[in-house]
Computed example of a mutant assay.
Amino acid sequence: MLAKANRITSADDYRVIVRRGAKVAGAHTVSYLRSRESGTDARFGFIVSKKVGTAVRRNLVRRRLKSVCHEALADGARGVDVVVRALPGAAEAEWSQLRAEVLEALSAPAAVPLAKGR
């Protein structure tokens, strides 16, 4: 489980990140990235709609995405807010495919910190 400091919990935060963040699309996920102050912990949020499948499938996908984000934190992800939206095909995707897509999004140039005040 991600620590409270590493979770996006506010609906307003989700809205801002999805609307104003950089979008990185993959085959099974769409990641939205928004820079924060450098030196702050990375925060992650997940959107897994009913189009992905039953509750069991959605929770499996969410747990896999959380695991990838936990790994990214261990590798030193800092200064960025990330919302990962699972597409309907994510339920059939292998863990390695989801991992590759999320880590690729985190390494994208869109994750470069913005100037303060944005």
Rank of each mutant, 00 (worst) to 15 (best):
M1H: 14
A3K: 13
A5V: 11
N6E: 10
S10A: 12
A11Y: 06
A11D: 10
D12G: 08
D13L: 12
D13I: 03
Y14F: 15
V16Q: 12
I17E: 02
I17Q: 03
V18S: 04
V18T: 13
R19V: 06
G21D: 05
K23I: 08
K23L: 04
V24Y: 06
V24C: 04
A25H: 05
G26M: 12
A27N: 15
V30S: 04
R34Q: 12
S35T: 13
S35P: 11
S35K: 05
E37L: 14
G39Y: 11
T40V: 08
D41I: 09
R43K: 11
F44V: 09
G45I: 08
A55E: 05
L60M: 15
R63F: 01
R64Y: 03
R64L: 07
L65D: 01
V68C: 04
V68K: 05
H70W: 11
E71S: 15
A72E: 02
L73F: 13
A74C: 07
G76Y: 11
A77W: 13
R78Y: 07
G79F: 05
V80I: 11
D81H: 10
V82I: 12
V82A: 14
V83S: 08
P88C: 07
P88Q: 05
P88E: 02
G89E: 06
G89N: 07
A91P: 01
A91C: 01
W95Y: 14
W95D: 12
W95I: 00
L98H: 04
R99H: 10
R99C: 04
R99T: 03
A100R: 12
A100W: 08
E101M: 01
V102E: 00
V102R: 00
L103N: 05
L103G: 02
L103H: 09
A105D: 03
L106V: 03
S107G: 12
P109W: 01
P109R: 13
A110F: 02
A110E: 11
V112E: 10
P113R: 05
P113A: 00
P113K: 05
L114F: 05
L114H: 13
A115W: 00
G117I: 02
